[in-house]
Design a binder for these strands. Structure first.
Lengths: 251, 251
DNA sequence: GCCCGGCTTTTACATTTGTTAGTCAATACT
DNA sequence: AGTATTGACTAACAAATGTAAAAGCCGGGC
C-alpha cells in the first residue's frame, strides 16, 4: 500500500484520513507465479489489481502467436481502473516476475472515491499517466531506433522505480530475460542482445538479467532522447527532478 | 453533433432529453486549415474539441524532428476529455485535412455530465475506446509487418468511418498523403508507396490520396489480422457487425 | 561432481526497410 | 502559356533488423 500512497503523493497531498482510507484497502496479497496470467483477454474482471511487489505486464497477442507487451506495472501500480465501463478485456495482464497483488473490489473502490474526491482525482491521474506512457511507447516504436528504444525503456524504468523507492544508487532490480525486452520493444531477441552489448560497450548501462545499473543517467537520457515530462511526475508538488537537461538537437 | 450522438449510441441508449442536452452543446464550429496545430504540446487547454468534420491527429515529435502520429479523429470524436486532470499537454493535436471543430468549455461539460450520468458514462466509454485503439496500434507497430500494419489501419478507418456514416459502398473519403500514412505507421514514405502498390496488386484496396476503396473487406481483414473487438462497438447494443468471421491461424 | 535445461551469445545469412536522388504528372501561380 | 510546387512513383544502394542454428554458460537437481 505504501508504494501506492507514495506514488499518488507525487500528484496530490493527502490528509491523514485519506491516507488511512487508502491503507485500509489492504486485503491479503496474492502471489502469482512468474509468466502467469492475472487477467486474460475476454475476461470481465470484477475488481482491480494493485501490484504490491514484482513486475507485471499488459500484453496483446496476434492469432498466430506474435506477442507485444504494451506496458508494465511496478509496485504501487493499479492495473485496471477502467474495467468498470468496458465489458470485456481487450488484452491480458500477466506476471513477469513473481508478483504479489491485492485484488480490490469495484464496490470498495467506489465507496472510497465517493467519500474522498481527492483520491478519485489521484487515481484518475494515475490512469492518465499510464495513457501518456503508452503514447510515448508508440513514439518509441515508430521513431526511435532499436538502441534508442531500449535505452529509453531503461530510463523510464529508472524513473518509475525511483518514485516507489526501488532504486539504490543507480541500480534497479530488474529480473527480466532478453526475450522480455524483445517483446516490450518489438525487436527480436538476437537484436536485443546486440543492442545491449552496444549499450554496455558505450558505458551507459550494465544489465545481467537481474539488476540494471545506469552508469550515467545523463548520457543514457541524452542517447535515448528521453524527456521525463510524459511521466507527469511534477504536477502536484515538485519532487522528482530531472537528471540532466534536455538539449534539443535541431528545429 | 449528430455524429457524436450516433457514436455514443453505439454504447448506450439516450432519452430525448439527453439527446437534446448533447445537441445543445453546439457552438459555432471553427474551421482549422489542413496541417495546422489545434493544441500544442505544453499548452494547458481550457476546453475540449469536438471534431465536426475532417480528420485530425494526435502526434508527438522528437527534438530532432522525427514525428509520430499517435491516433486520429473523425467527426464525432472528442479530443481531450482528460485535460481536466493533467496540467500540461504531453503531445499535440493538429488538423490533417481541413477540419471543423467545436470548442466546448470545461464548465459546460461538467454541468452536463453532472446532470446526466449516462452521458458521463458514455463519454468515459469513448476515451476508453480510444485507449484501446492506441493499444492496438502498439501491437501493430511492434508485431505487424509494414503491409499488415497499413492494411490494419485501413480496416480501422473503414470501421470507424462506418459508425459515423462516412462510408458509401466500400468507399471512404480519405484525403491523406502517403507521408501521412508514413507518420501513422512509423514507415518511410518510399516504403509506404511500395506497400500500397502491393496491396493494390493483391486486389485488396484502391487508394488515390482522396478516396480509399476496400475491394474485399473479408480478404483485407484476414490479411491484416484485424479483429474489431478492440473498437468495443457492440457493447451497448449490437449494431455494427463483423464483415467476416475471424479465423484463428494457430495456437 | 555431473548432467540438464534455460538463457545468453555468436555466426552467417536473408529480408525488410530506409536513404538519396531523380523523374513524372497534376495543379497552382503569374 | 510558362514556371514553380507538390506529391506519387522509381531505382540503386545502404543500413537495420530478423532468422536459424549452434556454441557457451551457469545454476539446480541428483
Amino acid at each position: 500500500m505504501d508504494a501506492l500512497i507514495r506514488k499518488l503523493e507525487h500528484f496530490t497531498q493527502f490528509t491523514d484520513e485519506e491516507r488511512q482510507a487508502l491503507a485500509s484497502l489492504s486485503d491479503l496479497p496474492v502471489v502469482v507465479g512468474p509468466r502467469q496470467d492475472i487477467i486474460r483477454e475476454g475476461d470481465n474482471p470484477t475488481g482491480v489489481n494493485l501490484i504490491v511487489e514484482g513486475y507485471a505486464i499488459r500484453y496483446k497477442a496476434l492469432p498466430d502467436g506474435r506477442r507485444q507487451i504494451l506496458g508494465y506495472f511496478v509496485s504501487g501500480d493499479i492495473c485496471d481502473l477502467r474495467v468498470f465501463v468496458l465489458k470485456r478485456m481487450d488484452h491480458s495482464i500477466a506476471a513477469l516476475t513473481p508478483v504479489a497483488v491485492r485484488v480490490i473490489s469495484e464496490k470498495r473502490i467506489l465507496e472510497m472515491t465517493d467519500r474522498y474526491p481527492r483520491i478519485m482525482r489521484a487515481l484518475w491521474w494515475t490512469t492518465l499517466v499510464e495513457e501518456s506512457i503508452s503514447r510515448e511507447w508508440l513514439l518509441s516504436m515508430g521513431q526511435r531506433t532499436a538502441a534508442e528504444r531500449i535505452a529509453h525503456l531503461f530510463c523510464e524504468i529508472y524513473y518509475r522505480a525511483r518514485i516507489v523507492d526501488l532504486v539504490e544508487g543507480h541500480r534497479v532490480a530488474l529480473p527480466l530475460r532478453q526475450t522480455d525486452l524483445a517483446e516490450m520493444t518489438g525487436l527480436s531477441v538476437v537484436h536485443v542482445n546486440r543492442v545491449l552489448q552496444d549499450l554496455r560497450k558505450q558505458g551507459l548501462i550494465t544489465f545481467d538479467g537481474q539488476v540494471l545499473t545506469i552508469l550515467s543517467p545523463e548520457k543514457l537520457e541524452a542517447f535515448a532522447l528521453f524527456d521525463p515530462l510524459y511521466l507527469h511526475m511534477d504536477e502536484g508538488k515538485g519532487t522528482v527532478t530531472r537528471t540532466a537537461p534536455v538539449t534539443a538537437r535541431a528545429g
